[in-house]
């Protein structure tokens, strides 16, 4: 997945159109984008869309309410039976929280005769505690297929200016990319909240790609094409990957002066797989 488009969970007109903007995933938001008095009808509405609306190949993710609320369990019960959803858990800090959600998912999957373990998880890390636990969290369950970074709360907690110096969040991105890489899962960068600053979005996306992120969450349809372009393999990268793999079965161990060894082959395979499938998400 290159782009993951957030969509408010209680707005039918947006839910109906969410699939037409070319994002690799839609994130149905039951958390911040829904007012407290609308939480119940939002989860019913999202459940209905997930059960019967055709989003084609676009992946469907639901950001449930936080585990510190009494809402998340009802959120899961409403959306998991559709059997097509990835659950994004906000503000994860401890493996015990992932266990809690996994236990609930086991019960729901069993009740609806879904394959055990079929509902996957994205962990949204938004606090210094969560960031520092990234490695443990990435390996906390086979259901976890991605880590995602949420910058707003993190910046608020640490005093980092969110739209200040571009290097300010390099540490966090590198830490998450490394933790995700250890388990062969994806790592998604935070949203860019300056809606009219497309150049800023492009620069930030390029920086997060350079640091190893697999894709980026977006909050407006206008941001999708920019992020897709940044996180797609270039023609040159694809061409080079093909040439490297062509050499894989020969005794030659160099291409254009570059040594070809197992990691280089692995990277070339990854580039080609991603080029063939924009929604590729990782080994799990």
């Amino acid at each position: 997945m290159r782009s993951l488009l957030y969509c408010p969970g209680n707005t039918p007109s947006m839910l109906t159109q969410a699939g037409i903007y070319g994002s690799d995933a839609i994130v149905f938001d039951l958390e911040d984008a829904v007012a407290p008095e609308q939480k119940d009808e939002a989860r019913v509405l999202c459940g209905a869309y997930l059960a019967s609306f055709d989003y084609g190949d676009t992946s469907c993710i639901v950001r449930i309410n936080g585990l510190d609320t009494d809402l998340w369990l009802a959120d899961l019960s409403a959306v998991v039976p559709s059997a097509r959803v990835i659950v994004r858990i906000p503000k994860v800090e401890q493996p015990r929280q992932v266990e809690q959600v996994c236990e609930a998912l086991e019960r729901i999957e069993s009740e609806y005769a879904l394959p055990a373990g079929s509902t996957k998880l994205h962990l949204l890390l938004e606090t210094p505690q969560g960031i520092e636990q990234a490695f443990v969290l990435a390996g906390s369950s086979p259901r976890v297929t991605a880590l995602a970074f949420g910058a707003e709360d993190y910046c608020s907690a640490t005093g980092i200016r969110r739209y200040g110096e571009p290097f300010a969040l390099d540490y966090v991105r590198s830490r998450l990319v490394s933790a995700a890489g250890a388990y062969g899962i994806a790592c998604f960068d935070t949203v860019w909240g300056m809606l009219s600053d497309h150049e800023g979005l492009q620069r930030e996306a390029e920086r997060s790609r350079a640091l190893g992120c697999s894709g980026k969450s977006v909050i407006h349809p206008d941001q999708v094409a920019i992020v897709n372009a940044v996180f797609s393999a270039t023609i040159e990268e694809i061409d080079q990957a093909r040439r490297i793999l062509e050499r894989a079965d020969t005794a030659l161990s160099q291409l254009d002066g570059r040594m070809i060894d197992a990691p280089v082959l692995s990277q070339a395979r990854r580039i080609l797989a991603k080029a063939e499938n924009g929604s590729q998400e990782g080994k799990r």
Partner: peptide
């Protein structure tokens, strides 16, 4: 101008 699935969801709520 709601889709039928929206009517179903709102009625249920």
């Amino acid at each position: 101008g709601a889709l039928e699935l929206v009517l179903q969801a709102r009625m249920r709520s």
